[in-house]
């Protein structure tokens, strides 16, 4: 609704901000993971009857560490620090960088999604907290979302039934990351391979999206790994 052209200086709220901001840090992952439940761990998939061609395969990459990192790319030390800890550069617009099981996705000009193996999550979070400087934020969202990988020759058709983003090779090369509307929810899609699409799905929408995806995939033959 509103907008100013010239940024104004904040008027003091009565506090003096400390030189380096102070954040709460907490290992949210218990030592015993045997009872953990990923967003799709209980979903009752309906796969195509055996013997049918399988055009779409779904596979959840469950219980990874997910972090939202926000910061200013104009802060060279922030960019450098993130790269040092993560081992890869923060990717630019609509791109992703991966190193082994660590993937960093661009979400917005000041926002990235980092996924890492669950057992490394706290170490990476701690190291980022130690290393990063200036104005940034780091938020653990591991419980709030999951990765669902759709692969197979017809995975692309499931996407075309679900979102109106152009998934053609010329517009969506491997490694690209796109946040878009998916069915009646939101989704971040990364093309992980020629026939491999990785969806970031929010926990509360997981049942709906899984049901939608398997419905869309039925005509191509659908399997779950």
């Amino acid at each position: 609704m509103s907008e100013v052209l010239e940024p104004k200086k904040a008027s003091a709220a009565g506090t003096v901000a400390s030189a380096e901001p102070v954040y709460a840090l907490m290992d949210q992952r218990p030592a015993d993971m045997s009872n953990a439940e990923s967003p799709l761990s209980r979903f009752r998939w309906q796969v195509s009857s055996s013997g049918k061609n399988v055009g779409v395969v779904a596979r959840e990459l469950a219980l990874l560490g997910h972090f939202i990192l926000r910061g200013n790319v104009a802060n060279a030390d922030f960019v450098k620090g993130a790269a040092e800890v993560l081992g890869v550069e923060l990717p630019g617009t609509l791109k992703s960088n991966a190193k082994g099981n660590l993937v960093v996705r661009w979400l917005a000009p000041d926002e990235w999604l980092i996924t890492v193996p669950g057992e490394q999550a706290f170490a990476i979070e701690s190291n980022l907290r130690k290393r990063l400087t200036g104005h940034y934020s780091l938020v653990n969202v591991s419980g709030g979302q999951t990765l669902l990988v759709l692969s197979g020759a017809d995975a692309v058709n499931v996407l075309r039934k679900s979102c109106h983003y152009d998934v053609h090779d010329r517009n969506f090369p491997v490694g690209k990351v796109v946040g878009t509307t998916f069915a009646k929810a939101q989704c971040v899609i990364r093309r992980a391979g020629q026939q491999e699409w990785e969806l970031v799905i929010r926990r509360s929408f997981a049942d709906y999206l899984a049901a939608w995806i398997q419905d869309a995939a039925q005509e191509y033959g659908f399997a779950v790994k």
């Binding site: 609704m1 509103s2 907008e3 100013v4 940024p7 104004k8 200086k9 904040a10 901001p21 939202i68 926000r70 000041d110 104005h135 940034y136 934020s137 938020v139 653990n140 969202v141 591991s142 419980g143 709030g144 979302q145 929010r202 926990r203 509360s204």
Partner: peptide, 22 residues
């Protein structure tokens, strides 16, 4: 909206954690 359009000078980031916390 307010952060981006009215007070971009404020150093603050907001992130949804609705789904993260049970």
């Amino acid at each position: 909206l307010y952060h981006q359009t009215e007070w971009p000078e404020l150093e603050v980031y907001m992130t949804s954690v609705t789904d993260h916390w049970a």
